[in-house]
């Protein structure tokens, strides 16, 4: 049985302007110890998908349907008390902005101890010992002296380490990381990604890595889900996605990326803006920005289907296989061209 199986997940928000379908029919599975990358631009629904799984959306304004089976149990239909038991224990989450994700009026020790005591019936002493152990594991220098410090006394990178310590303190089976390095500098990002890799080996947790950065995905994920306008447009093993991308949006993302290792005079650009989810485009949601658009794209929504040669590579595009292969090859050649 898969650790987490998400089936046809839909989440919509009530807003003053109408109903926003932020996630519209998303399915994927996460196996034990595996890393799933979810890539997309802002508003693509990648964060909301995970917040829905964790049950962290505001209840009054949110409607969700579909299934999110955690070890076979549907989280969407679980009682909030059951969900609370899973959250922070079997499944935990770290967020984008380490500067605001810790409570400024409590010491980090207190916040770590709270995370332990919410799920384990242990004394403060035991919990604090565990907290110290984790702070050392995530590489906080002189952890003994810093456990009673407040969040504002740490740098951004150190705070993200504290967040990771807090997320791993109860040995979770799944860690959801929502843009964990976006707010950090590049050398700090390298530290944090390294740390997560090492801890994943030690703790054996599965990871869902939500990011807009294709580089981060390429270096960390086993499987990748590409989201656009609340839908999955492509889902493949990381090597397949980068070597044989099948969707024009994925091509656009890859082409629009300035790269260190290759020379491009002009970036491929995806024209236009991401669509409003209040009134998404008909047919394929990418059609107004797609350079390969056909008549059928405007009227019929493409299904997420396996490619002919690889049942594990899913894509949602009406283009024929031949065109896709040709365009994918062209893109790969242009971006793989070694410098010099």
């Amino acid at each position: 049985m898969a650790l987490l199986e998400v089936k046809d997940l839909r989440t919509s928000f009530k807003t003053e302007d109408g109903i926003v379908k932020a996630v519209d029919g998303v399915s994927f599975t996460v196996e034990k110890g595996q890393t799933l990358g979810i890539v997309g631009e802002s508003g693509s629904g990648k964060s909301v998908t995970c917040l829905t799984i964790m049950g962290l959306n505001a209840k009054r304004t949110t409607m969700s349907s579909g299934e999110a089976l955690w070890k076979g149990k549907d989280l969407l239909r679980a009682k909030s008390s059951e969900l609370r038991k899973i959250r922070g224990d079997e499944m935990s989450m770290i967020f984008q902005d380490p500067m605001t994700s810790l409570n400024p009026v409590h010491t980090i020790g207190k916040q770590l101890v709270e995370a332990v005591q919410l799920h384990r019936d242990v004394t403060v002493r035991v919990a604090k010992a565990r907290a110290l152990e984790l702070l050392k594991a995530v590489g906080i220098p002189k952890a003994e002296g810093r456990i009673d410090d407040y969040p504002h006394q740490f740098s951004g990178g150190m705070r993200q380490r504290v967040m990771i310590a807090m997320a791993l303190i109860n040995d979770p089976d799944l860690l959801i990381a929502d843009e964990p390095t976006t707010a950090l500098d590049v050398t700090t990002q390298a530290q944090i990604l390294n740390l997560m890799k090492r801890l994943q080996e030690d703790f054996g947790s599965a990871i869902i890595m939500i990011t807009h950065d294709l580089g981060v995905v390429a270096e960390t994920a086993d499987d990748v889900v590409v989201m656009y306008a609340a839908k999955v447009v492509e889902h493949a093993k990381v090597h397949d996605l980068f070597n044989r991308p099948q969707h024009p949006y994925t091509w656009g993302l890859m082409g629009s990326l300035p790269r260190l290792e290759t020379d491009t005079e002009r970036l491929v650009q995806i024209p236009g803006q991401p669509p409003s989810l209040l009134r998404p485009p008909s047919g394929c949601r990418f059609h107004p920005r797609c350079p390969y658009v056909m008549g059928v794209c405007r009227t019929t929504e493409p299904k997420l289907l396996a490619t002919e040669r690889d049942p594990s590579h899913l894509q949602a595009c009406h283009l024929d296989q031949e065109t896709k292969d040709r365009e994918a090859n062209k893109l790969i050649e242009s971006t793989m061209a070694e410098v010099g």
Partner: peptide, 20 residues
């Protein structure tokens, strides 16, 4: 964000209200 963090830790609403 830190209230969301507390929820993600599995803290009950009452505790979140008073402590965070």
């Amino acid at each position: 964000d830190y209230v969301r963090t507390a929820r993600a830790k599995g803290a009950p609403e009452q505790r979140i209200l008073f402590s965070h």
